[in-house]
Design a protein around this nucleic acid. Sequence first.
DNA 1: AACTAACCGAGACGGTACGTCGGGTCTTAGT
DNA 2: ACTAAGACCCGACGTACCGTCTCGGTTAGTT
Lengths: 194, 194, 194, 194
Amino acid sequence: MPPEPSSERRSERARRAVLDAVYELATSKGYAKLTIEAIASRAGVGKPTIYRWWSCKGAVALDALDERLGAASDLPDTGDVAADLAAQITSVTAMLTGDLGRVYRGIIGEAQSDPELMETVREIIVDPRVRVCRERLDRAVAAGQLRADVPTAVMVDLFYAPVYYRFLMGFDDADVERSGDLVREVLRGLSTST
Amino acid sequence: MPPEPSSERRSERARRAVLDAVYELATSKGYAKLTIEAIASRAGVGKPTIYRWWSCKGAVALDALDERLGAASDLPDTGDVAADLAAQITSVTAMLTGDLGRVYRGIIGEAQSDPELMETVREIIVDPRVRVCRERLDRAVAAGQLRADVPTAVMVDLFYAPVYYRFLMGFDDADVERSGDLVREVLRGLSTST
Amino acid sequence: MPPEPSSERRSERARRAVLDAVYELATSKGYAKLTIEAIASRAGVGKPTIYRWWSCKGAVALDALDERLGAASDLPDTGDVAADLAAQITSVTAMLTGDLGRVYRGIIGEAQSDPELMETVREIIVDPRVRVCRERLDRAVAAGQLRADVPTAVMVDLFYAPVYYRFLMGFDDADVERSGDLVREVLRGLSTST
Amino acid sequence: MPPEPSSERRSERARRAVLDAVYELATSKGYAKLTIEAIASRAGVGKPTIYRWWSCKGAVALDALDERLGAASDLPDTGDVAADLAAQITSVTAMLTGDLGRVYRGIIGEAQSDPELMETVREIIVDPRVRVCRERLDRAVAAGQLRADVPTAVMVDLFYAPVYYRFLMGFDDADVERSGDLVREVLRGLSTST
DNA sequence: AACTAACCGAGACGGTACGTCGGGTCTTAGT
DNA sequence: ACTAAGACCCGACGTACCGTCTCGGTTAGTT
């Protein structure tokens, strides 16, 4: 994702130091007090080195976040789609209410005024997780557990929406964690049973 | 909502000029380029006058937005709760995809790093609209149109979540406007009918 | 000396409070930190009340200083002009190295960029003291103790110059107090004796 | 003399532009209207660049003044100490009554409330000129032209005092230029002859 | 094995905006 | 009518960061 001025000469040491610094600063001081200068200073790196590889502080933070999130993992498939989704939501809300969530919130905030950053957020963070979720939903539809007349792309939005809504609109952590309850109700309308 | 250093001596002229300036600048230049200096300059007002009555640019913008939104209006009550809610969602998405929406998006973005501002956003903008929505839902529950075992507070979140999710996560305007479709599906799971 | 917007309705209470406040602030915080706002606040007086009667903070401070200096008093006349002048210099340097001196120094500093204020300083503070000094010198010339070919106006400048020079050019208090020694040497060149 | 945050990386271009700007502004608008912002703007330089190298506007102005004064030059030594000193006084008063004098007056005024600046003024401007004057006086004493019982350090003060006194106490330029007359009288008391 | 090109650290630079202070004017209430 | 109070417009303050631009110094891959 870095805009690569081309080269394999890039210093891995500097990359590591920057990503570590941005994470430590973002979680300790808060995303708002995160500055390129502070990152450079903390990482023992020159500012141009940061600008060479990232376009703005959101991009750096996003890289650091992505690295710590790890790859999007497949949803479990126990046969019980409701339980599988619930497990997924639980894992997502756990992340959002932790240190990584605070960083993520800051990035999304900045991205409200930076469409390009927002686009990158979706590519890096959201889309992969949406994709694995859709795959599980597709199987559930194929198994006749979920209605076939609602696109799974729509279903995915319905699942994530309550979580993000509470996460981004200032609900406290407990409410964010409880958003699984909302998802359960959504699911009821999408089930073929009853 | 301004933190009022107390007084009726406040100049209405200055207040008006500031609110007008902030709206014009936010919609023309974009929320990110909005600065207190630019507001002061455009409004023909001293910076201290702004800081006297507002805590940050988000607070000023919020006041300007609130003023233009007008009071939260009651939902229509045609007897058909689904249609009434759909009308409400349409009106909300129309706002969000317009000029006011761009300002609102900027405010919410800033509020991601400013819990106090977020709190104010909810008090001023969100809560009143949630309240009138709940009242309509309460009547629908009483009329036996919606399930009584789901708190209407939860239902409201389910209605607003898809709209805000798409609004804040970089979906394009067309998708935001289509979020009424998601709400329709949500409603199906909350209805008492089959 | 106040520029009198005309009136006997002037509040003596306000005048007193202002002059007291300016003196206390100037001696405690230093002349540089003296501001019209601080004076008004400390005196319990509105800023316009100050601007009504004085043109700038230097003018206020000058009034306060003048009041505390009291009227210029005649030099003693023991018959020994050298001794009489030495006594005068001692009294002047004592003032300059004390609290009043710090205020005076600030006023003169401000007056370097305000010719009108400088003019007033000379009228109020310097000229009266020069006058009484000249009178004593005139008598000494008449008595044949001092040369008649040097105008007493020039002599006065020669007496005051070393004191002011050290006072205004950053010599420490001890050196200012010792400037009487310089005056003694000056006097030798002005005496008729040997 | 700038407080050097250390480095040879300093931009000579910026230094020159600042010193030129401060001189032009001080002589055209007057020292009182000189501001750091105006200097920065006129010089095409950022304000932080000024604050990086100088502590206050007085320090900048002092540098500009010093540069234009050039090094303190030795007094002439024609053998006639009175004539040599008179020449020196003439050159000093010429400076004081010109453009540079107006700048100098402003600096000294500001220094009345800033002991550190005053100290620097003496180091940079006064002391070097006092030193060369003392050297000439030392030779005159050795030659038996001046009394040996008065320290030359004291004599120097006696020579400069009248000039500075008139310069700083609001005498008009003609009087400042005439202060050589006072010096002549002082000299009479210091001579060995008759 | 030396060359050379790119990246590296450091940090000064021209700027923009910050949030604050104080100046001097004006308005409002209250003696 | 003059006062106390304080809001107002304005200009400047000194600071924080921005993103850019040199600087040497190191470090690789190439010759």
